[in-house]
Every structure is written in structure tokens, then in C-alpha cells.
Design a protein around this nucleic acid. Sequence first.
DNA 1: ACCGACAACTTGCATTTTGCAAGTCACCTG
DNA 2: CAGGTGACTTGCAAAATGCAAGTTGTCGGT
Lengths: 129, 129
Amino acid sequence: MMKSPHKNSCVEGYRSTCPIANVLDIVGDKWTLLVVRDLLMAGKRRYGEFQESPEAIPTNILAERLKRLEAAGLVKKELYQENPPRAEYFITRKGADLGPVLEEMGRWGLKHLPGTMLPEQFIAPQIRD
Amino acid sequence: MMKSPHKNSCVEGYRSTCPIANVLDIVGDKWTLLVVRDLLMAGKRRYGEFQESPEAIPTNILAERLKRLEAAGLVKKELYQENPPRAEYFITRKGADLGPVLEEMGRWGLKHLPGTMLPEQFIAPQIRD
DNA sequence: ACCGACAACTTGCATTTTGCAAGTCACCTG
DNA sequence: CAGGTGACTTGCAAAATGCAAGTTGTCGGT
């Protein structure tokens, strides 16, 4: 039997050995990095705070992305109250390491997308592992 | 009539004034940045070359992404033969400016996704505007 | 004690995007 | 002139997205 024409002897669950391709499997969509941005650059922690961002993420997508980010180890969920369950979300060190990616995206947007702007103040995140 | 709760007096077609959000509207999916990677770091130019990458992009997605990248001004399509029509794709200066974003993604992946690796040799792109 | 509001989600469903397979079209090669 | 090749296009099923509405327990006021 003929093998596929692509040399794909890579780690289980990886599309290839390329780090960029595999990063995109985690954050490669229109919403995930906006949640990371809010955690990392705006100091947001609560579900309701993420919803207040001007891009108006749909609530079901937000819930799903928080779960995926937690599963990927970029976010830590902590209950601060049992009943009713109320949680706060913190970025991990692994998630915080995406900072430079966001910074470069911001730089590109500012240069090439007229009318875009960054806030004058960033709010430092609490990192929890 | 009540306005939306989000202060969205931003440029036509923008989700918000945030550069990151608007960059994600251009490259925020699993495939687009892989095409940019191939153009920018692997020196690829032809349709068939993009298909040979180990991630095996579906052919219809490749065609659609090349069109969108051209429409967004990140890629320039040039026919090198009329009949049958044969084209080469070049990255523009605007597209090449995404280099740092890819570099930071690569750095993150190498650090946090064990088993990933970058090629030892990059092939410099031809930039055309 | 009851009413409404609230925070943090969940569910249902229509629309859109993705993924896979197959088809096309005009050459080129033996 | 039969088969192969490069660069796509088309069709369709499956998955992701977007929107609206519903749920659950609690708190603040009257």
C-alpha cells in the first residue's frame, strides 16, 4: 500500500512537526486570542468581563474557548464560591508566553490597518499555574 | 432606540478598534498563516508547492485563501504564462511584515510543544508590491 | 415572603466554514 | 494519441460559528 506523499512522522495529534502549524491548532481562530488578550493585557478574570469587550464574543463560543484554553493549559479556572458556582480565570505562564505573539500582531495591525489603536494603559495579569 | 452596550464607533468593516481583533479577521484561522509561512520562510511560489507542505492543505481551501490574501493585499498573483493560465504568488511588503508574528509563534511552539522543530534552512522570499 | 435582577452558563437551531473526493481543462511527454 | 501533470473548480457531508432564548441559585429591595 502506498503511503501519503507527506513525511508525517510527527508527535501524536500534531499536524506536522512545524511549531507554527501546531500553535494554530490551539489558537488558530477568530476568538481564542481575543480571550488571551483580555486575560493578558486587560487584566480580565470573570466571564462577564470577557463578554463586555467591544468585539462581543457570543456566549457559547466564550464558554467553549475557556474550556479549550484550560484543557490546553493556557488558562487556570478557580472557583471563588461554591454555590452558585462562580469562577475566575487566570492565565498560566504558558499562556502568558503568548504575549510576544499578541504584541507583534498589534504592531502589524497598527501599521497596516488604519484607525486601529491600542489602549494607553495595560493592566498586568495575575499568572497562576 | 437603545444602542448596543459596546462602544463600537470604529472603521467600517472592523469588529472593534483593536488591531489584534482586526488582524485576526484576516489571518485568524488554521490555514492562512501556513500559506504565509510557506511564502515567507520557505520561498514557495506555486500552487503545487503549497500543497506539498506536510500539513496537506485541502485544495479548495488553498485556492480560497490565496484569493483572500490577494484581496487583503498580502499576496500578489502574477501570471507567468497565458495558456493554460499559470501563476506564481509573491508575498508583498505588507505580508512580509507578518514575519515577526510567525517568528514569535514559532518560538512559543518550540518552547511549549515538545517534538516540534523549525527547518535548519529558511529560503528568503521575493517581495513584490 | 415575594419580585425582579444578575452572573455564569447551557441549549437549540440556522448559517457559514471546513474537509474530502472527484471533475475539468489545456497542455506536455512518450 | 494515450496517459500524465499543474492549477484549479465543484459537490456535498460534517463541523464550527452566530444568534436568541432558557436555566440555576442568590441577592437586594419592599
